[in-house]
């Protein structure tokens, strides 16, 4: 017999569904242990109920003050009831965009930036040291990985300590997510570009070749990671991106047969279709975001 121990508190508070309450009641009829547990919960519930009941109800003047303040909120020169962006943030669209971006910088976990910077720096150093002609391969391995992890860390579903605030703020979830993606990808793209130019300058490779080595796979891996992290959860996004990455590593090391090689290799070539696929994947995710079922946004909700 399993005891419904963790339902008894909710049963005492009368906050579980009727059919669950029925099954608990049936169990209680034949289990003295759980009945004693329930008695303890009832004692707690009564004490808390008494305490809360001792707090006086909101006085009428409170309601009056509140309604008066309401009128002043609304009555300000016929301002709209729910203020829009334009008011708090200033007119021009580009200025609003800049402010949203600046706000995201503080909200993205600092560790995301730190890890991305360290890995990129180490990768660039290794690429600089490696024998001529292999710098591209190093960049093709390092940059996409950093981008995929960074995007999952910054945009992933449930990773944001402030997401309750974001949900209650006036900025749409799409704008926030897009801003965050732009910021993270932009920063990594910028850093990788600087690294490539630096490598080209020390004659580690041709500039275009260096760029082409990482741009395509970075776009694809971060798009895959982004879509899965947002629509599902970060662990899945990171997992799938890492799987692609490891397959490519193994294929490069001749550990796998030709089939896998032929499947993975095109993903590591910068091409129009590849970049288009990545862009469509990201755009689709952003478009889909507001239409996700309610529970997806909140893992903690537990249903």
């Amino acid at each position: 017999m399993t005891h419904p121990s963790d339902l008894l508190a909710a049963y005492a508070a009368d906050t579980i569904s009727a059919d669950r309450a029925d099954s608990v009641a049936r169990h209680l009829a034949e289990c003295s242990g759980c009945t004693a547990e329930l008695a303890a919960w009832r004692r707690v519930a009564d004490a808390v109920g008494d305490r809360v009941a001792a707090f006086a109800a909101p006085p009428a003047r409170l309601r009056d003050t509140l309604l008066a303040r309401l009128a002043s909120v609304r009555g300000a020169a016929g301002a709209p009831v729910v203020p829009r962006y334009a008011a708090p943030l200033g007119g021009a669209a580009w200025r609003r965009a800049v402010r949203i971006l600046a706000a995201q910088r503080r909200l993205v976990d600092r560790r995301t930036w730190l890890v991305a910077a360290v890995v990129l720096a180490v990768g660039a150093a290794v690429a600089g040291w490696s024998p001529p002609g292999t710098s591209e391969q190093v960049l093709a391995i390092v940059v996409p990985l950093v981008a995929a992890l960074g995007v999952a860390g910054a945009c992933g579903n449930g990773t944001d300590p402030a997401d309750e605030l974001v949900a209650a703020s006036l900025t749409g979830v799409r704008a926030v997510l897009l801003a965050r993606l732009t910021l993270v990808l932009g920063a990594i793209l910028g850093a990788a570009s600087v690294a490539s130019l630096g490598l080209a300058w020390v004659d580690a490779g041709a500039p275009l070749g260096l760029f082409a080595a990482w741009l395509g796979p970075m776009a694809l891996l971060s798009a895959v990671s982004f879509a899965l992290s947002v629509l599902w959860r970060p662990a899945v996004g990171i997992g799938v991106a890492m799987a692609l990455w490891v397959l490519r590593l193994l294929a490069g090391g001749n550990a796998l047969d030709g089939t896998v090689d032929r499947l993975v290799e095109p993903l590591w070539r910068t091409s129009g279709p590849l970049l288009l696929t990545a862009a469509l994947l990201m755009a689709g995710t952003v478009l889909l975001l507001p239409h996700l079922p309610a529970a997806v946004g909140r893992r903690a909700y537990g249903r």
Partner: peptide, 30 residues
């Protein structure tokens, strides 16, 4: 849980903790 009468899932949401933690916190409180 007992004053406001919120379900455990709702408490989890308000406090920003998993439902399992709500349940264990109730036991610890008791």
């Amino acid at each position: 849980a007992f004053g406001a009468g919120l379900a455990h899932a709702e408490i989890a949401e308000v406090l920003g903790i998993p439902v399992g933690t709500v349940k264990s916190r109730l036991f610890h409180a008791r």
